[in-house]
Amino acid sequence: MIEIDRVSQIFQTSSRKDHLALSDISLTIEDGAFVSILGPSGCGKSTLLYIVGGFVSPTSGLAKMKGKAITGPGPDRGPVFQEFALFPWKTVLGNVMYGPRQQGVRAADAEAQSKALIEMVGLKGYENFYPKELSGGMKQRVALARTLAYHPEVLLMDEPFGALDAHTRTRLQNDLLNIWERDRKTVLFVTHSVEEAVFLSDKVVMMSKSPGRIRQVIDIDLPRPRRRTELLLDPRYQKYVVDIERMFDDSDEPASNP
């Protein structure tokens, strides 16, 4: 379980004015839940993810993982970034093996596990390629495999499909759900796409910006395993999407946002 307890984050901008990126955020994420954080750009949703990752310390408040305060990054929380962040000097296999080797797994075992993961994300045969030789979608598959390789309890996904074209994005969403169905890790998924959030999640956390606050938390009560073709026709799915979009539209109106 992840508990975010009254977290605020203040950044100093270049003009030395304080910018309140996150204001008094409290949120609890249950084990095994797929939770999306949805909001416009600049609402601090990535910052919130980095705080859970331990990459950024909150200005005030506390984030806890299994009851213990998060003070830094750790292999129990595995990030997947929009920019892939693969090590360019390592091959696909080298990238995926990095985590297990850091965890002290013997080279031969790490290699076997990594090869299995590479196959699982659909990249068998690409083990000895360098990231530069892969397309964006393939790079993100490698990044996912690299993170899964050290068995994190929580996946922290920071707009992971944001840099991909629509077709690749859809395929990766489906594949992510398939992988997730197997072991049901806790996933914290940052996105600005309403459809993506509803399609993937058990719970959607809607944020508003300046300052970044939680606007509403919506439970997505749709059956699993989810199939895209069925879901797109499902009126319940459509209603979630439309309702959430309406709420964001309302907040853009000056009258309700003085």
């Binding site: 970034f81 850091q102 994190p152």
Partner: peptide, 14 residues
């Protein structure tokens, strides 16, 4: 150096 390369390595236990 890209910050997220460093974060990725730290999360992996470096």
């Amino acid at each position: 150096v890209e910050q997220k390369l460093i974060w990725s390595a730290m999360a992996a236990g470096t």
